[in-house]
Design a protein around this nucleic acid. Structure first.
Lengths: 240, 240
DNA sequence: CGGAAACTTGAAACCTTTCAAGAGTCGTGG
DNA sequence: CCACGACTCTTGAAAGGTTTCAAGTTTCCG
C-alpha cells in the first residue's frame, strides 16, 4: 500500500480560504468574512497526492474533513467479496469524509484519480470551531445534505437504461466542470471505461459501445479519455 | 412489520424520551440523563397518521426531524417523468428529515405504510438545543452518517442479481426487526410486491417469482405479506 | 356479493453481459 | 528510436437474466 505522506507546500503565496478560488463552492460558502478567517486558521492547505494514492482508506480513523483543491478523486468501497464499487467522483471544491460520520471509521476509501491537492479541516479543530462559528456546522450539514441528494440521484439513475445513465453522467460532469470554471464541452475523463462502468453499473464493453454510439450520432467526439461535446441538448434529450 | 408494541401516547403514563422503549435506537442514544431531559422538553410526541398519509411532502419546507415511534414509513422521491422511487423503509426508532438538509426543502416525501406514530424535534428547538447540548448535534450527525451507509449498501446491493437483492432485503428487515424486539423470523411486509420491486429495482413479477422460489427451496413460507423464515442461514448464503 | 386491486405464472422479447479476439496506446529499456 | 509487454479499448457474437405482456387467480373492501 502506498498512502504516501502528503508533501506540504511552502506557502509563500499565502493562499487561504478567503482568497481561494473555490470559496463559493467549498466550506466557506455560507460564512461571513470573520468566520472564514477563523476557518482559515484551522485549515491545513497544500497537501498533494499522486494518481492512485489514498486520501484515506476504508477502516481508517476519521481525522477530519477534506476538500479537493485541484484534481479529482473517487470514493470507493469494497463489498464482502472484495469487489470495488465507485460511489462518487469528486471535483475541486467538494468535501470528503462524510463516510466516517456514523462510526468515526471511514466506510470508504478516497483515491486520487490524478495529481490532487487538497485542504484539511482536522476533526479536533472542527469541534473547537463549531462552538465559535455556529454557521460552520450548519454549512457542513448542508454539504452532507448535498451528498444525500447525490446518492438519491445515483440510485434513481442506475434504474434507467444504459444509454441514459451514460448521458446523464456526461451531462452532470459537464455542468459541474462549468461551475468550476472549466470548459463544459471539452474535458478529459479521469475515469477509464472500467471505472465509468463500475460507477454506473455497466459492463466496460457497454460503456465503450455507447460512447461509440454517441459519437456516431454526432453528439460528441470521444478520443480515449478526451470528450468533446458537440450537441449537449441532444445528450440531454436522451436522459429526459 | 407488526408494530403494536408502542401504545398511543397516553397522558397518564407521561411517556418521554427517557423512558421510551426506543431510547437506545433513537436520538437520545448517546445522550446523558440531563441531556435527554432537555431533549424531552423540546420533542413533540404522539403524532399519528394513517396508511398512505404523508409525514412530509417533497417540496415542503423543513420543519424538524421526525422519529418513528411505531409503524413503518417509506421515503420516496419522484423523477422527472413523475415515476416514484422508494429510497428507504423506516422502522421504529429511526429518524426522518435528512433529505431536507441541503436546501431546507424536502427532496423526498415520507409516507406511512400503515398506522404510524411519531415524534418531532422542531427545527427551531433543534437549533436552540445544539448550543446547550453539543452531544445532540454530534448524535444527529451520526444518524446522518448511518443514512449514508444505508445508501451505500443499497447502491451496491442493486448491482447484484435479483435473487441476492431480495434475500438481502429480507435479512436486513429481519435483523432490524429483531433489534427492535420483534420476531426476526415471523413478520409482515408493509410493502407490496410492487413496492419491494421498486425499492430493489426489480419488476413486480420478479419479486413474486423469487418469493415463490425461496418458498420452494424451503427457505421461508410466504403468505401474501406475511413472511415466516425457516432457514435464515440459507437465505444469508444466497447473499454471501 | 361484486368489482377493483394485488398477486401468480408462463412465454416471448429485450437489454446488457460475457466471452473472445484484435487493435491501439503507453512507458520502459535496450 | 524502436521494440516489447502490459494495459486499455473496441467490437462482434452468443448467452443470460429480467422485463414485459398477458391471462388467470386470489384477496380485499365497500
Amino acid at each position: 500500500m502506498h498512502t504516501s505522506r502528503c508533501s506540504q507546500a511552502s506557502n509563500r503565496l499565502q493562499v487561504d480560504c478567503s482568497n481561494c478560488s473555490l470559496e463559493t463552492l467549498c466550506l466557506p460558502r455560507g460564512l461571513s468574512r470573520g468566520e472564514v478567517n477563523q476557518l482559515t486558521q484551522a485549515v491545513r492547505r497544500g497537501n498533494t497526492l499522486q494518481k492512485g494514492d489514498l486520501l484515506y482508506r476504508k477502516g481508517d480513523q476519521f481525522r477530519g474533513f477534506l476538500a479537493i483543491k485541484s484534481g479529482t478523486a473517487k470514493i470507493v468501497t469494497t463489498d464482502a467479496e472484495g469487489g470495488e464499487h465507485i460511489l462518487d467522483i469528486l471535483l475541486p471544491g467538494e468535501l470528503l469524509g462524510f463516510d466516517a460520520l456514523a462510526t468515526d471509521i471511514h466506510n470508504c476509501s478516497a483515491v486520487a484519480l490524478e495529481t490532487v491537492s487538497f485542504c484539511e479541516l482536522p476533526a479536533n479543530a472542527f469541534e473547537r470551531l463549531c462552538g465559535k462559528v455556529p454557521t460552520l456546522f450548519r454549512e457542513l450539514f448542508r454539504h452532507a445534505g448535498e451528498k444525500f441528494d447525490d446518492d438519491v440521484r445515483l440510485i434513481i439513475l442506475n434504474k434507467r437504461p444504459a444509454e441514459e445513465r451514460l448521458a446523464a453522467f456526461l451531462i452532470s460532469l459537464s455542468e459541474r466542470l462549468q461551475r468550476r470554471g472549466f470548459s463544459p464541452l471539452n474535458f478529459r475523463l479521469s475515469l477509464n471505461r472500467q471505472e465509468i462502468g463500475n460507477y454506473l453499473d455497466l459492463a466496460l464493453a457497454t460503456v465503450s459501445r455507447l460512447l461509440r454510439q454517441f459519437q456516431d450520432d454526432g453528439l460528441l467526439i470521444v478520443n480515449h479519455k478526451s470528450i468533446q461535446i458537440l450537441d449537449i441538448e441532444g445528450l440531454r434529450k436522451i436522459y429526459s
